[in-house]
């Protein structure tokens, strides 16, 4: 039985790899099904899948400088020019 599951299901390493590479290369149906069942039985991998959008929106929203830092930076620039 264990062997059966091992053949059917991906390892966690493979599963997380496929989740990330699916952005570059869409998964075929069989891969999707295998991944679906893997996540169903493996909470850490399910958690990994869910964390992706959070990390993405963090990166999209990161601004380099806080408002005070930006003001200071502009002040220095103006000083250099004048």
């Amino acid at each position: 039985m264990a062997t059966f599951f091992n053949t059917l299901l991906y390892s966690c390493k493979k599963a997380t790899e496929l989740m990330d590479s699916s952005e570059a290369k869409p998964l075929i149906l069989m891969q999707k099904i295998r991944l679906y069942f893997h996540k169903l039985l493996c909470p850490p991998c399910e958690c990994y899948a869910k964390s992706n959008p959070t990390i993405a929106s963090f990166l999209k929203n990161t601004q380099p400088l806080k408002k005070e830092e930006m003001d200071e930076f502009k002040r220095n620039l103006r000083k250099k020019i004048n």
């Binding site: 390892s11 390493k13 493979k14 493996c42 909470p43 850490p44 958690c47």
Partner: peptide
């Protein structure tokens, strides 16, 4: 190739 510490995933 499975998670070594599956319980560590608290996030």
């Amino acid at each position: 190739d499975n998670w070594k510490n599956p319980k560590e995933h608290s996030f």
